[in-house]
Amino acid sequence: HSIEQTEITDLPARDSLNPGSLQLVSKFKNPSSSCSVDVSAVWWERAAAKEPCIITACEDVVSLWKPLDTLQWEKVHTWHFTEVPVLQIVPVPDVYNLICVALGNLEIREIRALLCSSGDESEKQVLLKSGNIKAVLGLTKRRLVSSIGTFCNQQVQIMTFAEDGGSKDEQLLMPPDETILAFAEVQGMQDALLGTTTVNNIVIWNLKTGQLLKKVHIDDSYQASVCHRAYSEMGLLFVVLSHPCAKESQVFGSPVFQLLVINPKTAQSVGMLLCCLPPGQTGRFLEGDVKDHIAAAVLTSGTIAVWDLLLGHCTAVLPPASDQSWSLVKWSGTDSHLLAGQKDGNVFIYRY
């Protein structure tokens, strides 16, 4: 076990847009020989106490870090992967002492659960799914949704974990006969699930019955749009999409996120808000995360940008730190912190 030196500062991040909106809380380095691929914050129970822990993933190792009193981080568990590299962490809300990871080369080939045995606290991994996995997402109420296969040979499945991560239940959702790109939860409606497909449709499921309720075709202006989150309000669905393939236009610059309003009854939709980069910033969406009404993205320029979807504008820009581009951005699942990562294993934790 190693204790990594962390630094605490009361200086706000170098943010010319809104100084102070992102404040550096702590940082640490994951000393690994392979490329850092993901970071996440989860609750983990040790000695009958639940702690907010950080999970870091490199291509060949996933580590769990617990907080020490001095805002340092101690590595307490490590899972090794020698055959298939790690692609992403898949947090499952409401489950303690379990984290899922997606493994593969370019595409996901396996989903594994990482946990510790109750007796000697030794690390274990359990294969949950294997195949041509196109999308996976952890949902509230200890559920994990995944889609395996493409077009007509697609299986969409919900797996439900016990509270301790143990025994699980499985249920199928009706497949849409279109390859699913991503899933998104609907805030305010726990039994609804959205997915975006390769032909620019948004599909809506009833998670209780497995029914496919509606397909909504969205504007073809941006190909391969990816859904991140949705909100159900007053009979309408407000959907946050990202546009990784969007070309920059002279009018709007580069659209990174879009808030779309859908009437699920009529399958009509209207664009409500286009989140573009502020003047002076360039780049396209590389990866991002949305929590509540705040959206964060890493741009191809190596900068992180944050938008408040209620205010309707960019609230913070975080330039590369220590002359190194950002490659990861995640909202903490345990508090209002932003986790920003670099390829060499540096993780910076900001308070928003």
Binding site: A192, N206, Q211, K214, S232, G235, V261, N263, P264, V270
Partner: peptide, 23 residues
């Protein structure tokens, strides 16, 4: 955003679509 473009809105859309969709 022009909600008129979206057609008639139902607060119970989830239940209504669930009763109409194939099981």
């Amino acid at each position: 955003c022009r909600t008129a473009d979206l057609g008639p809105i139902s607060l119970n859309w989830f239940e209504e679509l669930s009763s109409e969709a194939p099981p």
